[in-house]
Amino acid sequence: MEEAAFEEAQDGLAARPVTMERYRELLRAFDATVCEALAVGQATSGRMAEPHVGYGTHIFARICGHAVSFVRAAPHSRWVKSDSENWDFSAIAGHARSIVEGYLFFAYMTHPPANAEELNARVNVMHLYDCTKRIRVLGGVVDKTMLEDFEKSAEEIRKRLKQNGWFSQLKDTLQEKLLKGGELTILSRPEQLELVEWKAREFYMFWDILSQYAHILTFSFYRMEHNGRGTGINNDADRFYIGLFLEHCAEVLSDCVDRMIVLFPDAAPVRKGIDSKFSPGPRRNLPRERKRKRR
Rank of each mutant, 00 (worst) to 15 (best):
A114D: 08
S276F: 03
K293M: 13
R239H: 07
A15Q: 14
A14D: 00
N124Y: 04
R284Y: 11
S168A: 14
S279N: 07
S69C: 09
G165C: 13
C256W: 04
R288F: 11
H58V: 08
M224Y: 10
A67D: 01
M109G: 07
R223A: 14
T185K: 12
R158Y: 02
E151N: 11
E247S: 08
E117H: 12
E25G: 00
M224E: 13
R288G: 03
D208G: 06
L170T: 07
L13K: 04
C64I: 04
A114W: 07
K199P: 06
R259Q: 14
F221D: 07
A39T: 10
S84R: 10
E118T: 02
L244I: 00
F206E: 03
R122V: 14
F6R: 01
L170F: 05
M48E: 14
G41H: 05
T185Q: 15
G281N: 09
L27A: 00
Y204S: 02
I59K: 01
E156Y: 10
P280F: 02
I59P: 05
L119A: 12
L184V: 09
A268L: 12
G232R: 03
K159W: 11
P75R: 09
I135S: 03
A154P: 08
I59S: 02
D258H: 14
G243W: 00
K180A: 06
E3N: 12
A32V: 01
G243F: 01
D236S: 15
G46S: 01
K171Q: 11
S98W: 02
